[in-house]
Structure formats: C-alpha cells, structure tokens
Simulated scan of single mutants.
Amino acid sequence: MLNPCPSAPVLVDTHVHLDDPGFDADRADVLARARDAGVHMLVVPGIDASGWPRIRDLCASHAGLFPCYGLHPLFLDHHRPSHLDALRHWLTHEATVALGEIGLDFYVRGLDPQAQRRYFEAQLDMALELSLPVIVHARRAVEEVVLALRDRPGLHGVVHSFAGSEQQAERLCEMGFYLGIGGPVTYARARRLRRVVASLPIDRLLLETDAPDQPNAGRQGVRNEPAYMRETLRVIAELRGESPASVAAATTANACRLFGLPIPH
C-alpha cells in the first residue's frame, strides 16, 4: 500500500533510465528522494540487449520499479538481428510491463533510417503478437511513427517525450495511445508543446522524466531525477487550469491502466 503524505500525491514516472551509470554512486538516495516527492512507481525502459539483465536485477531489487525491454534506435550499432529473437525470449520469460524503448530517430546523423525501420517495425509486430504496450521514441519522425502505429490496429502504448503537432497528438489519442510529457514542457519557449498539453484529454496524458536526461527549466546542466517530476506536474496543472492533485490522480490512473501497475491506495 502506498501512503505518501497529502502534500505529495502519488506519481508514476513512466520513463526513467534508472539503470544509467550516472546513478551508480547514489541510486538509493535518488529513489529515496523520489518517494519523498510522491513518485512511488517508476518504469525503466531498456535500450539494448546488453543492458536487459541489469534492468531486470535492478527492478527485482527495489520495490516500485518495473522493467521493460527493447532495442532503441540511438543504439543501432549495438543491435544485431539475433537480438530480436533474444528480445522475444526476454519478453516471454521475464517479468515486464512493456516493450520499449523503441522507435525512430531522424535527428541524429549517421543512423541508417532503413535499419531503424526494420528494428522498429519488427518490435511493433512483436508487441502486437504478445499483447504488450510499446514505449516509443520519435524524434524528427513523429509522422512516420504515427503511420506505423496506425497500420497496426490493436497496438497500444505511449509516445514518450512527445514533440509533435496538435494534429498528430489528436491522431495518436484517437488511436488510443498516450503521450508522455516531461521536462521540455517546463520551458516557456516550448509553446507548441504547451498548447498540446493544455488541450490534451487528461485520460491520454502520462508524466515522465527521461532521467538522467531532459532536465526541467532552471536545472539545465544538472542530472535529472524522478523527484523533479513534481515541478513538471505543477507546470502541467497550471497550463490546464487544474489542480496538481487532480492531474496526479489522473496520470497515475493512466499509467496503471496502460502498464498494469498496482493501483495505489
């Protein structure tokens, strides 16, 4: 049973790379600060095959951590076709709440678009076959990602760190996908994202940090961590004209529904 103090509504960080070596020196303290801030559940996505055992062991060692496994487009040089078979084995033999992080990244130069598409589409098909949600990375590739998801009716999941248009957000919501919102929304210059968040149906919104990356405004150059998600919650609530408590309750319910997490009391 989760019993945070009333000033810290129960939150779920739906995207945090807690296995990152940047947390090795003080991971226990990071988790303690997260819980003090009301972040009691954390979804930890995988990025390449070599990291899956580390994520499994980390999540097995700490309450409230939930593992995912996938092949991330930024680590294309690490992936091999055989890793798709290995991924299927992990997803069917290890506890997991989603297939991810997967996707397309056309921002970073030198990443073969065709190779990215092969891994991405194979993993989408695998998630559909196994009835698992997907955690999708889409940078400079939102339109192509939307089309790939549309071609697979029945697939469900989240486009994390959403950075697309209002129209793309509407299409994803219509398909039953969630949009993950984190640190970028705290920047005043992120006007398009702020418009999306202000108008997004609350039942399609998830909170995330992408820690240790994507720090909030005012924390540039500082390692991001789950405790800072309270700041993101405050900004989102202000943009929507709602209370932080109501946004916290709705986004936590959304995360529990998508990932099958235990419902907090």
Results as ranks from 00 to 15, higher is better:
residue 3 N to A: 13
residue 8 A to K: 13
residue 9 P to Y: 15
residue 9 P to H: 13
residue 12 V to M: 08
residue 15 H to R: 11
residue 15 H to A: 01
residue 16 V to D: 15
residue 24 D to L: 02
residue 24 D to M: 01
residue 29 D to P: 06
residue 29 D to N: 14
residue 32 A to Q: 05
residue 33 R to D: 12
residue 45 P to N: 07
residue 50 S to C: 14
residue 51 G to T: 08
residue 52 W to C: 02
residue 52 W to Y: 04
residue 57 D to L: 11
residue 57 D to N: 11
residue 60 A to T: 06
residue 61 S to K: 06
residue 61 S to N: 05
residue 62 H to F: 10
residue 64 G to H: 04
residue 68 C to V: 07
residue 71 L to Y: 08
residue 72 H to F: 04
residue 74 L to H: 05
residue 75 F to Q: 00
residue 76 L to M: 12
residue 76 L to E: 12
residue 76 L to A: 10
residue 77 D to V: 12
residue 78 H to K: 05
residue 81 P to H: 13
residue 82 S to I: 04
residue 86 A to M: 11
residue 87 L to K: 06
residue 89 H to P: 00
residue 97 V to P: 08
residue 97 V to K: 05
residue 100 G to W: 10
residue 102 I to G: 05
residue 102 I to K: 09
residue 104 L to K: 05
residue 110 G to D: 03
residue 114 Q to G: 13
residue 118 R to F: 15
residue 118 R to T: 15
residue 119 Y to D: 03
residue 119 Y to N: 05
residue 119 Y to H: 01
residue 121 E to I: 09
residue 124 L to M: 05
residue 124 L to N: 00
residue 125 D to H: 08
residue 127 A to Y: 01
residue 128 L to Y: 02
residue 132 L to V: 08
residue 133 P to A: 08
residue 134 V to Q: 11
residue 135 I to Y: 10
residue 138 A to Q: 06
residue 139 R to I: 00
residue 140 R to I: 04
residue 144 E to Y: 08
residue 145 V to S: 02
residue 145 V to Q: 01
residue 146 V to D: 00
residue 149 L to W: 04
residue 150 R to Y: 01
residue 152 R to W: 01
residue 156 H to F: 15
residue 165 S to F: 10
residue 168 Q to L: 15
residue 168 Q to C: 10
residue 170 E to H: 15
residue 172 L to Q: 00
residue 173 C to Q: 09
residue 173 C to Y: 07
residue 176 G to Q: 06
residue 176 G to P: 00
residue 177 F to Q: 06
residue 177 F to E: 02
residue 179 L to W: 12
residue 180 G to C: 10
residue 181 I to F: 12
residue 182 G to Y: 09
residue 183 G to Y: 11
residue 186 T to I: 07
residue 188 A to M: 10
residue 194 R to Y: 01
residue 196 V to G: 03
residue 196 V to Q: 05
residue 199 S to Y: 07
residue 199 S to P: 02
residue 201 P to Y: 09
residue 201 P to N: 06
residue 205 L to N: 09
residue 205 L to K: 03
residue 208 E to C: 13
residue 209 T to M: 11
residue 211 A to P: 05
residue 212 P to N: 05
residue 213 D to G: 00
residue 217 A to D: 14
residue 221 G to S: 10
residue 221 G to W: 11
residue 224 N to R: 12
residue 225 E to V: 14
residue 225 E to M: 10
residue 228 Y to L: 15
residue 230 R to P: 01
residue 232 T to P: 00
residue 233 L to E: 07
residue 240 R to F: 04
residue 245 A to S: 14
residue 249 A to P: 00
residue 252 T to I: 04
residue 252 T to Y: 12
residue 253 A to E: 02
residue 253 A to S: 09
residue 254 N to K: 00
residue 255 A to M: 10
residue 259 F to V: 05
residue 259 F to C: 00
residue 263 I to A: 13
residue 264 P to Q: 07
